[in-house]
């Protein structure tokens, strides 16, 4: 249990009648990358708000670093950004980070280094209010890194960014993850979580739907996208494939599911031998997004 960074037990939060967080438990250990997934309003931010000392819990417990530290002292070893970047607009990037250093009680010598990581070193003397949203978000990440945190908590880090900004932020996250920092990433963007996380917690209406490894959630039931110049003929031939489970055909592409693992090369050979040359053959895994929708929908139909 030495490696326990955060342990949440049966956490509840009620806003009047709304049960925003309903019996959430989660254990975070050193070195892993965790994701909290859920649609907007599913209780992700509230859960993070509680462990970050800005929202009061209704009941339940949480312990930072095995419960040895007071929450606010523990937070000095944590780097976190919540929803939108919050800084003093009239101060420059550098001054804002120096202020954070003062609050965290760390030396401000790392300010330049962290600004370098997020690519803002050239703008360090510009006021925060002159920054674009992407730059603000990157500054927030730099700020969260100032104390070389044991864990980095990111709540919707790419929310509202343009594609380029999303790309930059993801690159930074990947870089940090590769250095062995524990990360907790809350997002409603599933591919984001799929790409960087090893463990995932799926929330909906404040309840846990799934808690475990990403690999185990993404089943290996892969499928193929097929296309040839004559799709009619392709379908005819496909029906004779011994392992075929089902297929959906539309004008453009045919999606085929097989009962067992089929390699792309085998399938290609199969069609070629039947006299069909494919101009499109892609093997796809069902993405976390589809898994997620299946998971959340099945709960919805149950209730």
């Amino acid at each position: 249990m030495e490696n326990s960074i955060l342990s949440i037990k049966n956490l509840h939060k009620k806003y009047g009648k709304v049960h925003a967080v309903n019996d959430v438990s989660l254990d975070i250990y050193k070195g892993n990358v965790y994701g909290i997934l859920g649609p907007n309003g599913s209780g992700k931010s509230t859960t993070l708000g509680i462990v970050l000392n800005v929202v009061n819990k209704t009941s339940g417990e949480y312990y930072w670093f095995g419960g040895k530290l007071e929450t606010h002292d523990a937070l000095k070893k944590v780097g976190a950004i919540i929803e939108r970047p919050n800084f003093y607009p009239y101060m420059t990037a550098k001054e804002n980070l120096e202020l954070v250093c003062r609050i965290k009680g760390v030396n401000s010598e790392k300010v330049d280094e962290k600004l370098e990581i997020v690519g803002l070193i050239d703008r360090k003397n510009s006021k925060f209010k002159t920054f674009s949203l992407g730059m603000k978000q990157r500054l927030a990440i730099a700020s969260a890194l100032l104390n070389d945190p044991e864990i980095l908590i990111l709540d919707e880090p790419t929310n509202g960014l343009d594609p380029q900004g999303i790309h930059q932020v993801r690159d930074i996250i990947r870089l940090i993850a590769s250095q062995g920092t524990t990360i907790l990433l809350a997002s409603h963007l599933l591919d984001e979580v799929e790409k960087v996380c090893s463990h995932v917690l799926v929330l909906r209406f404040g309840k846990i739907l799934y808690n475990g490894k990403v690999d185990e959630m993404v089943n290996h039931n892969a499928y193929f996208e097929l296309q040839s110049s004559n799709n009619q003929k392709l379908i005819e031939v496909l029906k004779y494939h011994p392992e075929l489970e089902n297929f959906e055909g539309n004008e453009e592409k045919i999606i085929a599911h097989f009962k067992t693992q089929v390699e792309a090369s085998e399938l290609n050979k199969f069609f070629f031998e039947k006299g069909i040359s494919l101009n499109h053959l892609v093997k796809r895994k069902q993405s976390l997004e589809e898994q997620f929708l299946t998971l959340t929908n099945s709960i919805e139909t149950q209730s």
Binding site: L52, N53, L75, A80, I81, Y88, P89
Partner: peptide, 21 residues
């Protein structure tokens, strides 16, 4: 009031300032 409108009150707490401090 600025601490509220800039959202920095929240951020200061997240950065490890206690409410008492």
């Amino acid at each position: 009031a600025n601490e509220y409108s800039y959202g920095t009150l929240k951020q200061n707490l997240i950065d490890g300032m206690s409410k008492k401090e």
